[in-house]
Simulated assay, not measured.
Amino acid sequence: MTTLITKALLPHVKHLRKVCKISKFNHTSVRLASNNYQAAVFKSKDATELTFEEKKQPKLKDSQVRIAVAYCSVNIYDVTSFSDTTRKFPFVPGYEFSGEIIETGKEAAKLFNKEDRVIAFSFDHCGGLATECVVDYEDVWTTPASIQLKEAAVLPYSYAAALYTFGVKAPIKECSNVVVAVGPAGSGLAAVDVAANIYKAKVVAVTDTEKNSELTREKGAFTTLHYKDNIEKHVISAFGNKRADVIFDAVGGEVHDVVTSCVDQNGKIFTLSPGKVSPPPPHSSLMRISLNRLRQQNLPEYRQIVQDTLEMAEQGMFTAHISEKFDFKEVNKAVEFIKSKKCTGKVVVKVN
């Protein structure tokens, strides 16, 4: 198997390709009635909360699998997307989730079996906040037996994006100077963890609260700064009168402008923000990281970086941070929790 991460990490990654045949997850408990399932739905663009509906199972295409959802992650970007007026309603949120396969299409059956424990993405149609979700097999990975489904639901996207950034697009090394803008969605924490602990870089984390500062220090940041600090001055001081080789912006907006002022000549800036951001300073570069776009541009690379992420997690090289857990019927409490800015990372909803 060819891995995308840098050669320095190859000895640490065992390419195990395990398919777990045993699961304690009982998918039969999710069935409401024959061919029906339950979903949390935004009925219209004017809806203020999710409502629960019984929906009819769609017929599987050859390339698809039907997954009984165990856990679905929710973060600030999910919540802000609920108000997207260009979206087709009714709408079932949730693009990152874990569970167990309960049905496979003809082509998908060549790679997956019923009862396989998996993680999946559903970028285009979402649908993860439901007892069942249908996705293409190219967006599904077998979950290693040592990784709980709760953690599997929040780990792949954030850590795969960080590994793709620091291992592929801007390979960093020990003592590289990295600044990470950490927000409430979990991707910033993952970037700190990967840069500091996997690649041994020198990481300055920029956060909005002391609680987030504590978490980033626990993840490996050697120092933390607040958004309102004189960031440029303090970053240069922290790096011994040097600027950052790489900026990882997991926040966007005004914070993007603040942290990018710290980039060195020929430095690289990466953002996960889906919104508009300012152009980079002279003699530096800016790139937006999106696994969804990577899927469209280079499917093998997309699948490989997520596979690498799961295998490294299996070996305990990193673990995801879960800010809070809610039951399926409490999904509106989960949304309010995120809106209130109480979260310090991804929120997970236990569907089954």
Rank of each mutant, 00 (worst) to 15 (best):
213 S>H: 14
272 L>T: 10
34 S>D: 04
56 K>D: 11
68 A>T: 01
42 F>C: 02
116 D>N: 10
163 L>T: 01
193 D>G: 02
179 V>G: 08
17 R>S: 15
282 P>Q: 10
119 I>D: 04
193 D>S: 03
31 R>T: 11
123 F>K: 11
217 R>M: 15
101 I>Y: 00
242 K>W: 08
110 K>S: 12
40 A>D: 00
212 N>D: 12
250 A>C: 01
85 T>W: 08
152 A>K: 06
180 V>C: 13
118 V>T: 02
105 G>C: 12
313 A>N: 11
275 G>N: 09
328 F>L: 06
66 R>W: 04
159 Y>A: 11
208 D>V: 01
187 S>I: 07
335 V>N: 03
162 A>Q: 08
252 G>V: 07
349 V>W: 08
347 V>F: 05
140 V>T: 14
164 Y>W: 11
117 R>D: 02
232 E>P: 03
340 S>Q: 14
221 A>P: 01
92 V>M: 07
135 V>P: 00
33 A>P: 05
40 A>V: 04
237 S>M: 13
275 G>P: 02
257 D>Y: 02
282 P>F: 11
266 N>A: 08
156 P>H: 01
14 K>S: 11
275 G>E: 07
4 L>M: 12
101 I>V: 00
131 T>M: 11
18 K>W: 10
246 V>I: 15
101 I>L: 00
143 T>E: 04
155 L>R: 09
337 F>N: 06
116 D>F: 01
254 E>G: 00
32 L>C: 07
329 K>R: 09
166 F>Y: 04
83 S>A: 15
49 E>K: 14
5 I>F: 15
